[in-house]
Design a protein around this nucleic acid. Sequence first.
DNA 1: GATACACTTCGATCGTTGTCAAATGATCGA
DNA 2: TCGATCATTTGACAACGATCGAAGTGTATC
Lengths: 101, 101
Amino acid sequence: MARTLPQPAREAIEIVPVLQALADPVRLELVRELAKETEPRSCALGEYDLDITAPTLSHHWRVLREAGLTTTFVEGRTRWVELRREDVQARFPGLLDAVLA
Amino acid sequence: MARTLPQPAREAIEIVPVLQALADPVRLELVRELAKETEPRSCALGEYDLDITAPTLSHHWRVLREAGLTTTFVEGRTRWVELRREDVQARFPGLLDAVLA
DNA sequence: GATACACTTCGATCGTTGTCAAATGATCGA
DNA sequence: TCGATCATTTGACAACGATCGAAGTGTATC
């Protein structure tokens, strides 16, 4: 039912793409929003207080997912995003905590 | 005698420029080299095993310094770089450790 | 001084990236 | 099945950034 979009395996998560993904104000804000809750959140533009268009938000979700920071899964016509806390923590211990503090 | 190049004060170090500075393979390598020792190191191209020219290295040192990650000071005709461990640790605890591990 | 040295700055190039408008694709309800 | 309505993908563009060669700046040495 819920289809998960392609993402790197835990071992394939690399530091440079992760830092590149985090080094953007919009994406950093998105990651911080995701970190506030343990539940997955909707990808929808309306859910976030950002001054960007839908295609741009979609682009940022993709960058985060391809870097290995998030998981996206599709359910009907809504998409859910979730922070890959454990995977990132396993690869780069302390990184998320440091960035989110 | 030793003149220190302009750099942001500790409180002025921001997370996005720091992440941007670290999100480049060359600069990440430089930071890792600096982290190996507590002593300042020379800026000179010959000190590092990099396949870039002197102007490019100079550019990277500048980005690191302006982000607040390093201190550069001039002594005669050599320049010395040093990681701002304490300042970065104070602003973003655990970040350097996570990135350098 | 004149020269050599150690970088930096300048100017240009070229790939990357954040952004949007328009087109596409997918899902739900009638 | 057919629109209506979402978000995503595509295509295009402007801004940014990494890079280099050439020229500039300041320091030591002769």
